[in-house]
Design a protein around this nucleic acid. Structure first.
Length: 683
DNA sequence: CCTGACTCA
DNA sequence: CATTTGAGTCAGG
C-alpha cells in the first residue's frame, strides 16, 4: 500500500519491525548514488505485504514528512537480512540515509536467478525474468509503467513521477522480487547449490565495499593525455585525408570501404554477412599505408571516447561489479568497465626503423598481430612495404617510460591514494592449472608443483615427443599452447585450424596427438560432453550447476574451468576482505585472475599475508600468485621487498626509487573527494 | 569460450 | 524527429 499519512507510517513500521528479513527496492532521481543522486521513495515487502514510502517526489502533494525517512531507516536497521534485485544499487542509496550495510546479510535475488537459469539465458533484468518464469501478466504492469515514464520524460529522474503511479510499480517489483526469492531458494536447495549461494551472499558485501571505495584517478594525467591524444589524432586524420584525397568519416566502416574500393583495394577478409571486412584483422593484411593509419586513428578515437572522456573531472572512479553478469560465475565490471583497461602503452609519434634489428623486431610484432587477428592468411610482415610497417610502430608494450612524454598508458591514470601502496596480485596460469586439476594427471600435477615451470614447453615435450634441442621446439611449444587454450575455450577444429594456420584436418591430427599423450585430457573432455548429452547439465567443484544445450557439451568444459577459477577467486577475496577488515588497507579491483589492493603504509607487513591467503586452496595443484608494486601507478609494476617495514623496489629507467620520492616528483594533486565521504566504513 | 563500451545504420 | 536495437569492432581475461 501507498503510505501517505503519519498514522499509516506508524502502522506500517510496527508491522515491518516484526520481521528480520526485508525485501527492498529504491526509486531514485538518477542512477548514481555516489555522484549525488538520491532516493525519492522506498518500497518494502515482508510476508506477502508491500509498502511504498514516498519521500522526495517533486510532485507537490503526498510526500511523507522528511523526518520519517530516518525513522524508517532506524526500523530497517533492526532487521538482519536485506533482500533486493541488483541489491548493491539500492544499498548505496539506503546507506546515505543511514542504513548500516556492514551489519546485514545481503541477498541479491538476481544472483539467485543466475544460479537457477540455463546458460542460454542472458536477460536477467527483473521484468524479463518475471515474464519468463510466471508469464506475460507478471511483467505487464512494469512494461506499462515504463511506457508512461518514457512518454512523460521521467525515465532519467523518477522523482518527477507522482507516487500514485510509481508506488504501485515499486510494490509490484518488491512482490516480484519476493516471489523469485522464494522460488529460487527452493531451486537452489534442490540443486544443492547452497554453498555457492552463500559464497555469493558474502561476495556481494565484499564487492559493495570495493565499489564504494573506488580507485583514485590522476586528473592531471587524464587532462594531459586528452590533449596529446587529440593532437595526435588530428595529425593522423590529416595523413588519412592526404592519402585518400578526400575528407570522410573514418569511424564509418561503410565510408572506409568506399575509399579503399576507389583506390582499387579489396579486403582479403569477409564479414559474417559476406561483405568486405575492414576490421583490424583485415587491415593488417593490406599492403598500403592507409590501412595502418586508419587502424591507428581507430585506436586513438577509442582511447579518447572510452578511456579518457569518462574519467575527466572525477578524482575517484567507482565501477559496478555484477556477480550475476556471466554464465560461468565470473564477475563483470560496468560504468566504467575496469576489467578491460589496455595493458600496453601507446606511442604518439612516427616511429622510425633504421637498423636491421629494429626492422626485424617490428616485423616480428606485426607477424604476431597477423597470426592473432588475420584468419588463415599467408601474408607475412616481410612482404609489407617499409612505409606500411612504419605505421604499426605505435603499439607499445607493458613497459611505460614515464620520462617520455610521447608515450601514454591508460593504466597510468590509476594511482594509489596518498600514504598507500597499490599492490597487484596476479595468479599465474590460473586456467591452465584449473584444467590440470580437473584432468588429475599425476605427471602434470607434479610438474605444476615446480616453481616457475614453463607449462607450455613441458606440455609440448609430452604431447609431441620433442625435447628442448629439437629444431622445431618453438613451433611445438606454440602448438601445445594453442591447443591447451583451444580445449579450455572449447573451440572446434575449424577455429583451431585458423589459429594454427593449417587445415582443419591437420588441426584435428595435432589435437588427437595432444589428447593421446596428455593422459586424462581426452577422458575429461569426453566425460563432460557425455554428461551434457545425457542429462543436460554439469556441476563444478563449487557445486555451481551449468545447464547446457545437449549438443553443446564442449562449452561446458570452458564453463567448468573458467567458472571454478572464478569461484575460487571469489572465495579467496572473501577471506582477504575478512583479513583486511579493521585495517587501513583494502581491496579495490578484480580483473579475473588479478586483485589490486591499496595497502596503507602502516600495513606493509600484511602484504605477503594477502598472497598466502590467495594461494591457499583445496585443489590438487598449487596456485602461484605474482605480487608486484604499482608505482607511481597501475601502469608500472615493480618487484619489491619489505625491509624494516618499508617497501623497497628496484628502479625502472631513471625514476625515483622510493614512494616518498615519487610523491614529490609526481604530478598528482592531493585528493579532495566529496564522493568519498558518503559511504565508507574506513574513511 | 566469457565479457562491456562505443559507433553507425 | 527522437529513441531503440543489432551488428561490428576492439579492449580485457
Amino acid at each position: 500500500m501507498l503510505v501517505t499519512t503519519i498514522e499509516e507510517f506508524n502502522t506500517a513500521t510496527t508491522h515491518l519491525s516484526k520481521y528480520d528479513e526485508w525485501v527492498v527496492d529504491c526509486e531514485t532521481n538518477g542512477l548514481y548514488a555516489l555522484q549525488g543522486n538520491q532516493l525519492c521513495g522506498v518500497g518494502v515487502g515482508v510476508d506477502g505485504a508491500t509498502y511504498y514510502f514516498p519521500f522526495r517526489h517533486q510532485t507537490l502533494d503526498s510526500n511523507l514528512d522528511s523526518d520519517l525517512l530516518p525513522k524508517l531507516m532506524e526500523v530497517m536497521n533492526t532487521c538482519k537480512t536485506i533482500v533486493g534485485y541488483n541489491i548493491k544499487f539500492d544499498l548505496k542509496f539506503l546507506e546515505k540515509e543511514g542504513l548500516e550495510v556492514q551489519d546485514k546479510d545481503l541477498v541479491d535475488v538476481i544472483v539467485m536467478v543466475r544460479l537457477t537459469e540455463s546458460t542460454n539465458v542472458n536477460a536477467l533484468n527483473l521484468t524479463d525474468t518475471l515474464i519468463r518464469r510466471y508469464g506475460p501478466d507478471a511483467g505487464a504492469y512494469d512494461i506499462e509503467t515504463k511506457q508512461v515514464l518514457r512518454k512523460n520524460k521521467w525515465t532519467k529522474d523518477f522523482s518527477l513521477c507522482p507516487p500514485d503511479i510509481l508506488g504501485p510499480y515499486c510494490e509490484k517489483d518488491v512482490a516480484g522480487t519476493a516471489r523469485l526469492y522464494v522460488d529460487c531458494k527452493d531451486k537452489i536447495i534442490r540443486s544443492k547449490q547452497e554453498k555457492v549461494w552463500e559464497l555469493e551472499v558474502d561476495l556481494t558485501k565484499v564487492l559493495y565495499s570495493m565499489e564504494c571505495a573506488g580507485v583514485a584517478v590522476d586528473n592531471k594525467y587524464v587532462e594531459s593525455s586528452l590533449g596529446k591524444l587529440t593532437k595526435r589524432s588530428k595529425e593522423v586524420l590529416q595523413n588519412i585525408y592526404e592519402i585518400s584525397g578526400n575528407e570522410f568519416n573514418v569511424a564509418s566502416v561503410a565510408q572506409v570501404g568506399e575509399v579503399f574500393t576507389s583506390l582499387g583495394i579489396r579486403s582479403p577478409q569477409k564479414t559474417l554477412k559476406g561483405r568486405d571486412s575492414w576490421s583490424e584483422g583485415a587491415l593488417v593484411q593490406i599492403n598500403h599505408p592507409l590501412a595502418g593509419w586508419i587502424r591507428q586513428y581507430r585506436t586513438l578515437a577509442k582511447l579518447i571516447s572510452t578511456y579518457i572522456e569518462p574519467y575527466r573531472g572525477a578524482s575517484t572512479m567507482h565501477t559496478t561489479y555484477a556477480n550475476w553478469g556471466t554464465v560461468t560465475g565470473r564477475l563483470s565490471s560496468r560504468e566504467p568497465n575496469l576489467q578491460n583497461i589496455p595493458r600496453n602503452h601507446f606511442k604518439l609519434h612516427d616511429v622510425e626503423f633504421n637498423t636491421e634489428a629494429e626492422v626485424t623486431e617490428i616485423q616480428g610484432r606485426v607477424d604476431a598481430i597477423i597470426a592473432a587477428k588475420g584468419q588463415n592468411t599467408s601474408i607475412s610482415a616481410k612482404s609489407l612495404r617499409k612505409d606500411v610497417l612504419q605505421v604499426w610502430g605505435f603499439v607499445g608494450d607493458e613497459s611505460l617510460d614515464e620520462t617520455n612524454d610521447k608515450q601514454l598508458a591508460i593504466r597510468r591514470m590509476f594511482k594509489p591514494r596518498p600514504d598507500h601502496y597499490l599492490v597487484s596480485y596476479d595468479y599465474s596460469q590460473m586456467e591452465v592449472r584449473m584444467f590440470m586439476n580437473y584432468i588429475g594427471n599425476p605427471d602434470m600435477l607434479d610438474l605444476m608443483k615446480q616453481e616457475d615451470v614453463d607449462f607450455h614447453g613441458e606440455a609440448a615435450k609430452i604431447a609431441f615427443k620433442v625435447d628442448k634441442d629439437h629444431a622445431e621446439y618453438k613451433f611445438y611449444r606454440q602448438l601445445a599452447k594453442t591447443i591447451t587454450f583451444g580445449v579450455i575455450y572449447g573451440i572446434g577444429k575449424d577455429k583451431l585450424a585458423g589459429q594454427l594456420n593449417t587445415s582443419p584436418k591437420e588441426a584435428s591430427k595435432y589435437k588427437a596427438e595432444y589428447f593421446k599423450n596428455i593422459t586424462g585430457s581426452k577422458k575429461f573432455f569426453d566425460s563432460v560432453v557425455r554428461m551434457v548429452e545425457q542429462r543436460g547439465w554439469v556441476k563444478s567443484k563449487y557445486n555451481r550447476v551449468y545447464k547446457v544445450d545437449r549438443d553443446k557439451g564442449y562449452k561446458a568444459v570452458n564453463y567448468l574451468i573458467q567458472g571454478t577459477s572464478a569461484d575460487l577467486l571469489s572465495e579467496r577475496m572473501i577471506e582477504v576482505s575478512k583479513f583486511l577488515s579493521g585495517t587501513k588497507s583494502r581491496m579495490l579491483l578484480q580483473v579475473h585472475d588479478e586483485i589490486i589492493c591499496e595497502i596503507h603504509k602502516d600495513d606493509t607487513l600484511l602484504i605477503h599475508k594477502i598472497r598466502d591467503i590467495l594461494q591457499e586452496n583445496s585443489l590438487n595443484i598449487p596456485l602461484m600468485v605474482d605480487m608486484e608494486l604499482c608505482e607511481p601507478s597501475w601502469a608500472t609494476k615493480h618487484d619489491f621487498e619489505i625491509a624494516d617495514g618499508k617497501v623497497v623496489f628496484e628502479k625502472k629507467s631513471s625514476l625515483p626509487a622510493t614512494v616518498e620520492e615519487y610523491l614529490e616528483w609526481g604530478d598528482s594533486p592531493p585528493i579532495t573527494d566529496k564522493e568519498l565521504v558518503t559511504s565508507l566504513d574506513w574513511s
